[in-house]
């Protein structure tokens, strides 16, 4: 019987071994994880631009890719070339400052013909990622002037910290809605982009409690009809607003019946 057992074991192992061998003879391909878009100090301009391209193609092209909601930055515009070339021509050395400004305070430089819908990108990206996007934009026809000093000057790798630096103490709800970039997505007074549900009439749709919940934990519930934009609203307004500011906004919105 032991001879039979040994034969069975040997046969099974031989069959298993044969299949393993076949799988080893053929090309060995491993599917790699795409590189994470996290840039740290010491990144070269090229690395920055490459990382920025990835960020740009995932974050920005939702609006900038189509050229309808926002201008397409990487194509030629009125014969002046893509964004890097135009920016270099217009601002020279100050190009990167201009780009930084338009990413962090986009309302100040809205291209004619487009609505002011872009949020302050610091709510979406950390400082290094913003610099990476700038490097990528500069690489489009211009030259990359972002250096690692820009990176090091920013607190490294902390998600959305920079917003704290520009916090104002105002409790004027309209001021706050503008400053926090709410109006980048939500319409008010009948005008504005339709990315989030409009603020008009929100007080009759939601209770005070729901509004507060919606600001502090925006991804918990998604308004009907806005599923495609689920997850876009930054989940960190709780850190950005003081209690007084939050209550001011809640009161204001609850009053808009």
């Amino acid at each position: 019987m032991w001879a039979t057992n040994a034969k069975i074991v040997a046969l099974s192992l031989a069959v298993i071994g044969f299949y393993t061998l076949v799988a080893h003879i053929i090309p060995q391909l491993q599917s790699e994880v795409p590189a994470q878009v996290a840039v740290g100090p010491g990144a070269s301009p090229e690395e920055l631009a490459a990382a920025g391209e990835r960020i740009y193609s995932t974050v920005c092209t939702a609006c900038h890719g189509l050229g309808t909601r926002a201008p397409n930055l990487v194509t030629d515009h009125e014969g002046l070339g893509p964004i890097g070339a135009r920016c270099l021509a217009r601002f020279g050395d100050r190009c990167k400052d201009y780009l930084y400004h338009s990413l962090t305070a986009p309302g100040d430089s809205v291209v004619p013909g487009f609505a002011n819908i872009m949020p302050d990108m610091r709510t979406q990206l950390d400082a290094n990622q913003i610099w990476a996007v700038i490097a990528y934009l500069q690489s489009q026809g211009g030259e990359i002037t972002v250096t690692s000093q820009d990176l090091e000057s920013a607190p490294a790798q902390t998600a959305q910290p920079a917003a704290a630096a520009v916090l104002s103490a105002t409790t004027d709800p309209r001021e706050l809605l503008r400053e926090k970039g709410c109006l980048g997505c939500h319409a008010i007074d009948g005008s504005g982009p339709p990315i989030g549900p409009p603020f008009d009439g929100i007080g009759s749709r939601l209770t005070r409690e729901q509004i507060r919940e919606g600001i502090l934990n925006p991804n918990a519930t998604v308004a009907r009809g806005y599923e495609q934009f689920a997850g876009m609203m930054p989940p960190n307004f709780g850190d950005q607003l003081t209690a007084a500011q939050l209550e001011a906004i809640v009161n204001f919105l609850a009053g808009r019946r």
Binding site: E53, V74, T75
Partner: peptide, 19 residues
């Protein structure tokens, strides 16, 4: 040589800076 002659195409690529 164990190359794949027809590699899986990317979903997108940049052509002269244009995606």
């Amino acid at each position: 040589g164990l190359r794949t002659i027809h590699p899986a195409a990317p979903t997108q690529f940049t052509f002269r800076g244009r995606t």
